[in-house]
Computed example of a mutant assay.
Amino acid sequence: MKVALLQLLPRSAADSADPGWLEPVARNLAALGVEIMVVPELILPGYNRPEAHREQAQPVSGKWIQQVGAIARSAGLAITFGWAERSGDKVYNAASFIGADGSMRGHYRKKQLFGPMERESFQHGAETPPVFEYRGHRIGMLVCYDIEFPEHARVLARQGAEILVVPTANPAGYGHVNEFLVPARANENAVSILYANYIGADGDLTFGGGSLIVGPDGRALASAGKAEAILIADLPKRSEFAEAHLSTQLKELRD
């Protein structure tokens, strides 16, 4: 399966309120045979914009989901993106996986909120991260800080996930996450991970880049530095070694 992720500069306020800018990118990637595209955390309405989180948050039936669904359907590829979700009087840091037919295949509310801003803006997600099938692959979802906790990735692996999609907003100074923790999560669970970050300044916050696509052996298939980038890779199937490795680990944990 060919996948892509976008490492982006933070969007302007206007762009962060309207996902239309995704359409030409999605079309170009689909023309290259990409089946899944991943963009960073809270791309709608922007990460470091706490005043916008509550004011602009939308329900799953809202305009953002409809717009991204239309883009995915028109381009012919799946899109995973982070956004501010409203449910009643609560707001969540959420991510959704929209299939190439425009339908929502997976939805997740971030459990591990990072820092004062996130904790003031959002409620903690309570549901187990989802695993769902898409074009013959089992896919799981996490958001940013979640991937730093081994338990979350392991829960997904136990449910049969082969690919983890992880929209993120990792600040500068936390390079150990993409350098060490993401590859470790991939290797210890025999899963591929798509980790899509921002780069550059967003108000008083600077993002560290370092987005990457990691194979089930923990080795990077594609990685970004300190500039905007589009990463594309063909995900390998789990090797017999990886399957046996994971099976042995899970058996030892059960025993």
Results as ranks from 00 to 15, higher is better:
Val3Asn: 01
Ala4Gly: 00
Leu8Tyr: 04
Leu8Ile: 09
Pro10Ile: 07
Ala13Trp: 12
Ala14Thr: 13
Asp15Arg: 06
Glu23Arg: 15
Ala26Met: 04
Arg27Asn: 00
Leu29Ile: 02
Leu32Thr: 11
Gly33Met: 08
Val34Tyr: 10
Glu35Tyr: 03
Glu35Asp: 03
Met37Ala: 09
Val38Pro: 02
Pro40Ser: 10
Pro40Phe: 12
Glu41Arg: 13
Leu42Val: 05
Ile43Pro: 07
Leu44Gln: 14
Gly46Phe: 04
Glu51Ala: 11
Ala52Phe: 12
His53Cys: 00
Arg54Gln: 13
Gln56His: 03
Ala57Gln: 04
Gln58His: 07
Gln58Lys: 12
Gln58Asn: 02
Val60Asn: 15
Ser61Thr: 15
Gly62Ser: 03
Gly62Leu: 06
Gly62Ile: 12
Lys63Ser: 13
Trp64Val: 12
Trp64Gly: 08
Ile65Asn: 08
Ile65Arg: 15
Ile65Val: 15
Ile65Pro: 02
Val68Asp: 00
Ile71Asp: 01
Ile71Gln: 03
Leu77Thr: 03
Ala78Lys: 07
Ala78Cys: 07
Ile79Pro: 00
Ile79Cys: 04
Phe81Asn: 11
Gly82Lys: 12
Glu85Met: 08
Ser87Lys: 13
Asp89His: 15
Tyr92Asn: 08
Asn93Phe: 08
Ser96Thr: 08
Ser96Ala: 12
Phe97Trp: 10
Gly99Thr: 11
Ala100Arg: 13
Met104Pro: 05
Met104Thr: 14
Arg105Lys: 15
Gly106Thr: 10
Gly106Lys: 09
His107Met: 04
His107Gln: 01
Tyr108Ile: 03
Arg109Glu: 00
Lys110Cys: 01
Lys110Ile: 11
Gly115Asp: 07
Gly115Ile: 05
Met117Tyr: 13
Glu118Ala: 03
Arg119Ile: 07
Gln123Arg: 13
His124Ser: 07
His124Cys: 11
His124Lys: 14
His124Gly: 04
Gly125Ala: 00
Ala126Thr: 15
Ala126Trp: 15
Pro130Thr: 05
Pro130Asp: 01
Pro130Gly: 02
